[in-house]
Design a binder for these strands. Structure first.
Length: 771
DNA sequence: CTAGGGTTAG
C-alpha cells in the first residue's frame, strides 16, 4: 500500500495554527542553545521553579504566586525546556505542561490578547520535547512504542507544534520500531520552516527502509531542487546509497540511470559518495553487466570534480577486464595518470590478471618488471604482494609455463618479500597436473606440506582432477579418502570431479554411489554436480537414470540450464526417442528457456539422420526466425545427410551456398564427408579439387581426409598421386591410422610397391613408439 | 590469486 504522494518539503498540512502563527514561531531557534548560554538574569529562577514543582502538589500550582512570579522572569523557551528536563519524569513534565497550557504566564512585553501568543506556544513545544525525552528514557528503545505514540497523539490534540528535536527523536524512535508510517506522520507535522537536513535525512531513511523508494526519491528530488533551503549533506548521500546498496527490504530496484542522476545532482551541491560507496556502486553495476553505466558514474563524479581514489577505478577496471574492453581499460589508466590518481598494487593486479587471462603473459611479465622501479622512466614504485605474484604465476601455469611459475615462486620470498601461500602452490600444482606431470604435482604437494603451507580443498580438487584425467581414477579415490582422514572435507567440486571421472571410465554405479555419498555427507551441493551426473548418465545411454537425477535436482531447488537441456534432448534423439526429446524441449520452454542454436542443431541433426528433409527445413526455418543463422554444424549435418541419401549434387550446392551467401567457412569435417562421398561416387577429380580448395582455405586435412582420398585413388589405381599424398602426410606429421594401413598394405603390396610402404611407415616410427 | 559439468555435423 502506498500513501498518497506527499510534497513534504515545500508544503505541509498546518491544521492547528494559522500560517501566520507558525511563521511567527519560526523565530524560535532551530536548536535550543546550550543551557550555559542562558541569559544571566534568568539563571536564578530556574532552580527555584524546579524546587517548587518538585515539592508541591500540581493541583496547588495555579494558586502558587511564588511559582507564577518566577515564571515571569523567564525569557526564552529553552528555559522552559531546562526546567522540564530537570523534573525527571514524563509524568511530572506533562503536569507542568498542563499547568502552563491552562495558566499561560503573560508575555513579558506585548499586550495580552487571545489566542495564545507565539512565545507561549513555543514554550509549550519545548516543554513537550522534555516530555518526549523523559518518555523515551523511561520506555527504553527496546520496549513497545505505545507510550510515545500516545504522547505524540496527545500533542496533536493539544495543538502543540513539534520542536525540531521532538521530531528528530520521534522519527528515530518510530523508525527503530519499524513504524515507518508514524515516522512520516511526525515529519508531516513538523513546521516546514523548522525542517533541517538532519530531520529530512531521518525521514529518507525511514522511507527507504520501508521500501517506499519512490516517496523517498520524491523527497530527495525536492531537496536537490536549488530553491529549497534544506541542502543535502554527506549524511543524506550515505542514507540514500546505503539503502540502494543493501537492498534487503521489499522496495523496488533502483535503476542505474536513477543512481547516476542522483549522484550527479548531489555533485552539484558539492556532495559526493565517499570512496567506499562509489567503489561498491561501480562493482554492483559491473557485476550486473552494466559496465557502461559504471563508466558513466565514475566520469560524472570526475566531471563534477569529486575526489576519486584508486579503489573505484580498480572496480571499474575489473569490470572492463571481464568484458575484455582493453581499449577503455587503457583510457581509464591514462585518465588516472592525468588526474594524478596513483594506481595501487590492486590496480596492477587487475591489469596483470587481465593480460594473463588474455594469455598475453609476456606483457604481464613486462609490467611486473616495471613495478619495482628499475631504471625505466615509466617505472612505478608499487611493491608486488602475494596476490599479484600468484596472479602472474597462475597466468604462466595456464599457458603451460609452469616451470617459469615455479621459478617465480622461488624468488617470491627472497626478491619480493612475500611468502608463497596455498594459492601459489595450487596454481603450480594445477599447471603440472594439466601438463600431465602428475608426479611433479605431487612433489610440489609434498613440498608445500614441508613448508608448512596448508593444502586446502582446492589443492585436493586439483590433484584429484589431475589424477583422474591421467589414468588414475582408481587411486584418486584412495587419495581422497587419505585426505578425508586428515580432516580435509570434499565439497561439491570434489564430487563433480570424481563423478565425471567415473562416468568417463564407464563406472556409472560408482558415480551414482559417490553422488549419494555427497548428499549424505551433508556437504553443500550445487547444480553442477547434478549436471555432471546427468551428462554422464546420458552419455552412457541411461536416460531413465538421468531423468531420475533431474527430478532430484528439481527437488533440491535447482534448475536445468540450457546446456543440460540440450544434453538430454541430444541423448533422447541419439537413442531415437523423439517423443521424449520433445517432452524435454517442452519442459524447457515451460521453464522459460529459449532454444539456442545447439538445440536447433540437435533437432536438425535428428531429422537429417532420418533422411526427413522436409522436417529438417521446417526446423531450419524456425531457427532462422528465432534469429539464429545456420552455422558450420548445421551445414555439416545437412551436407552429411544429403551425402548419405546419395544426393551429392544437393550436398555440393549447400557447400557452395555456405561459402558464398552465408560466409560460413567449412571445416575439415565437412570437407571429409564431401571428399569421401565424391570418391565413393567415382568423382575423384572433383574430390582432388576439393582437397586443394581445402588447403587454399587453410583447413588442415587430417587422417580421415587422406584415408578417403587414398581409397578413391586406389579405385583408379592412381599410384603417383597416392605417393604424393603419402609424402604430404609425412611432411605435415599427419599420422596414419589402422584404416590408412589397411588401404595401403592391400593396395601397394598388390602392385609390388612394398618398398614405398616401408619407407612411409619408417617416417612414423618415432611417433608410433610415443603413442 | 587457486578447483568442477557442457551440448550439435564425424
Amino acid at each position: 500500500m502506498r500513501l498518497r504522494p506527499i510534497n513534504l518539503l515545500l508544503k505541509s498540512p498546518k491544521p492547528h495554527h494559522s500560517s501566520a502563527t507558525l511563521r511567527h514561531l519560526s523565530a524560535e531557534p532551530q536548536n535550543p542553545p546550550p543551557l550555559s548560554e542562558e541569559p544571566r538574569n534568568t539563571t536564578k529562577p530556574i532552580p527555584q521553579i524546579v524546587s517548587v514543582l518538585q515539592t508541591t502538589n500540581p493541583d496547588d500550582w495555579p494558586t502558587n504566586t511564588h511559582l507564577h512570579h518566577h515564571l515571569l522572569l523567564l525569557s526564552s523557551p529553552p528555559s522552559f525546556l531546562k526546567i522540564a528536563r530537570q523534573l525527571g519524569s514524563s509524568q511530572k513534565s506533562l503536569q507542568f505542561f498542563n499547568y502552563l497550557k491552562n495558566n499561560p504566564p503573560p508575555p513579558n512585553s506585548s499586550p495580552t490578547s487571545p489566542p495564545p501568543p507565539p512565545q507561549v506556544i513555543s514554550n509549550l513545544s519545548f516543554v513537550f520535547q522534555a516530555v518526549f525525552e523523559h518518555a523515551l528514557r523511561e520506555e527504553g528503545p527496546e520496549s513497545s512504542p505505545s507510550k510515545l505514540l500516545e504522547l505524540f497523539n496527545f500533542s496533536k490534540e493539544q495543538n502543540v507544534p513539534l520542536s525540531v528535536n521532538s521530531a528528530t527523536l520521534l522519527i528515530k524512535f518510530f523508525a527503530r520500531a519499524k513504524m515507518f508510517q508514524e515516522s512520516v506522520a511526525v515529519f508531516s507535522k513538523l513546521d516546514p520552516d523548522l525542517r533541517n537536513v538532519h530531520v529530512v535525512n531521518l525521514l529518507l531513511d525511514s522511507m527507504l527502509k520501508s521500501g517506499r523508494i519512490d516517496d523517498a526519491l520524491k523527497v530527495l528530488d525536492e531537496m536537490l531542487e536549488s530553491e529549497f533551503n534544506v541542502q543535502p549533506n554527506q549524511s543524506t548521500m550515505d542514507t540514500v546509497l546505503s539503502a540502494v546498496l543493501t537492498r534487503n527490504w521489499s522496495g523496488r530496484n533502483v535503476r542505474e540511470e536513477e543512481i547516476i542522476g542522483i549522484v550527479s545532482r548531489f555533485g552539484e551541491h558539492d556532495v559526493f559518495p565517499n570512496s567506499v560507496w562509489l567503489t561498491q556502486l561501480i562493482s554492483k553495476f559491473c557485476r550486473s553487466g552494466k559496465c557502461d553505466k559504471a563508466w558513466e558514474l565514475l566520469h560524472e563524479v570526475m566531471r563534477l570534480r569529486g575526489e576519486v581514489k584508486a579503489a573505484p577505478c580498480n572496480a571499474l577496471l575489473t569490470g572492463l577486464g571481464k568484458e575484455r574492453d582493453f581499449q577503455r581499460m587503457n583510457l581509464l589508466m591514462n585518465e588516472m595518470k592525468e588526474k594524478d590518481i596513483s594506481p595501487d598494487v590492486k590496480t596492477f593486479g587487475i591489469l596483470i590478471n587481465h593480460l594473463c587471462k588474455c594469455r598475453r603473459v609476456d606483457e604481464a611479465l613486462e609490467m611486473f618488471k616495471k613495478l619495482r622501479g628499475g631504471n625505466e622512466s615509466d617505472a612505478v614504485s608499487v611493491e608486488p604482494d602475494v596476490v599479484l605474484c600468484n596472479t602472474l604465476i597462475d597466468g604462466l601455469c595456464k599457458v603451460g609455463r609452469q616451470e617459469e611459475g615455479l621459478e617465480l615462486m622461488g624468488k617470491m620470498k627472497s626478491e619480493h618479500g612475500c611468502a608463497p601461500n596455498t594459492a601459489t602452490y595450487n596454481s603450480i600444482i594445477d599447471g603440472f597436473c594439466k601438463a600431465g606431470e602428475v608426479e611433479r604435482a605431487f612433489e610440489l604437494f609434498d613440498m608445500m606440506n614441508k613448508d608448512g603451507v596448508e593444502p586446502n580443498v582446492i589443492t585436493l580438487n586439483i590433484l584429484l582432477d589431475g589424477m583422474c584425467r591421467h589414468g588414475r581414477v582408481g587411486s584418486s579415490l584412495e587419495f581422497f579418502n587419505d585426505m578425508q582422514g586428515k580432516g580435509l572435507k570434499g565439497n561439491a567440486i570434489t564430487y563433480s570431479v570424481l563423478i565425471t571421472a567415473f562416468c568417463g571410465a564407464n563406472n556409472i554405479d560408482k558415480a551414482m554411489k559417490l553422488f549419494d555419498q555427497m548428499l549424505q555427507s551433508g556437504c553443500s551441493s550445487d547444480a553442477v554436480v547434478y549436471y555432471s551426473l546427468i551428462s554422464g548418465l546420458t552419455q552412457a545411454g541411461r536416460l531413465d537414470d538421468a531423468s531420475f537425477v533431474v527430478s532430484k535436482l528439481k527437488k533440491a531447488g535447482f534448475c536445468l540450464d540450457i546446456v543440460c537441456y540440450n544434453v538430454l534432448i541430444g541423448g533422447y534423439c541419439r537413442r531415437n526417442k523423439f517423443e521424449q526429446a520433445y517432452e524435454i524441449f517442452k519442459d524447457m520452454e515451460h521453464a522459460g528457456l529459449k532454444p539456442d542454436r545447439v538445440t536447433y542443431n540437435t533437432f536438425i541433426s535428428y531429422f537429417c539422420e532420418k533422411g526427413d528433409f522436409k522436417t529438417t527445413h521446417r526446423v531450419l526455418k524456425k531457427m532462422m526466425e528465432d534469429g539464429f543463422l545456420p552455422n558450420v554444424v548445421t551445414y555439416g549435418a545437412m551436407i552429411r545427410a544429403y551425402c548419405m541419401a546419395g544426393n551429392i549434387d544437393e550436398a555440393m550446392k549447400i557447400f557452395r551456398d555456405m561459402n558464398s551467401s552465408s560466409k560460413v567457412s567449412p571445416n575439415n569435417i565437412i570437407y571429409n564427408i564431401l571428399i569421401d562421398t565424391l570418391c565413393k561416387n567415382d568423382k575423384i577429380e572433383v574430390a582432388l579439387t576439393l582437397m586443394d580448395d581445402m588447403k587454399d582455405k587453410g583447413v588442415r586435412p587430417n587422417t580421415t581426409t587422406y584415408n578417403a582420398m587414398l581409397k578413391g585413388l586406389q579405385a583408379r589405381n592412381w599410384l603417383e598421386k597416392a605417393f604424393k599424398l603419402m609424402d604430404e602426410m609425412t611432411e605435415k606429421a599427419c599420422n596414419p591410422d589402422y584404416i590408412t594401413m589397411e588401404i595401403l598394405t592391400g593396395w601397394l603390396s598388390a602392385v609390388g610397391q612394398t618398398e614405398k610402404l616401408r619407407s612411409f611407415v619408417q617416417g612414423y616410427e618415432v611417433s608410433f613408439s610415443v603413442s
